[in-house]
């Protein structure tokens, strides 16, 4: 069984834990002696791991880029190139027509991590040219 160190993805307590993996399946977590949790985990840290196995209990994971070629059309799976070029083209068109402040972006306060937020706010500011970047700190 493999053990991989992580920080719990749920509340802001910052609990250190190991993710236990067997044959590519997450089979559990175990608490570590982190600074805030000192070897304890609550029910979410202890049993909130198996969404990683794509259980589809509530809703499925998304594994491939998909888009609606025109507004309101059904989703189609596309390649990454198609998806990113589509987004780039649309965002540039909005920026051209309405200015950079017509584009809103968010960071993510959840599992994405700090580095993804750093890149996102740089993208908003340096590439789009707007400060319309925010995160879900209010809800």
């Amino acid at each position: 069984m493999e053990k991989h160190m992580a920080v719990c993805p749920y509340c802001g307590s910052g609990c250190k834990l190991n993710i236990l993996v067997q044959d590519g399946i997450v089979v559990g977590t175990e608490p570590l002696q982190g600074i805030t949790n000192e070897g304890e985990l609550c029910l979410k840290g202890l049993s909130g791991y198996d969404f990683l196995n794509d259980t589809k209990i509530l809703t499925p994971r998304v594994y491939h880029p998909q888009l609606r070629p025109v507004k309101g059309a059904p989703f189609e799976r596309v390649t990454w190139d198609n998806a990113l070029n589509f987004v780039a083209e649309k965002l540039l068109a909005v920026k051209e027509k309405f200015g950079p402040d017509a584009i809103m972006l968010t960071g993510s306060s959840r599992g994405a991590g700090n580095e993804a937020n750093l890149v996102m706010q740089r993208f908003a500011r340096a590439c789009i040219g707007t400060n319309n970047i925010d995160n879900c700190a209010r809800t």
């Binding site: 559990g28 985990l41 609550c42 029910l43 202890l46 049993s47």
Partner: peptide
């Protein structure tokens, strides 16, 4: 009343 006991029991 956090319910961690229930989760641990279930697991």
């Amino acid at each position: 009343a956090c319910g961690t006991c229930q989760a641990a029991c279930s697991l």
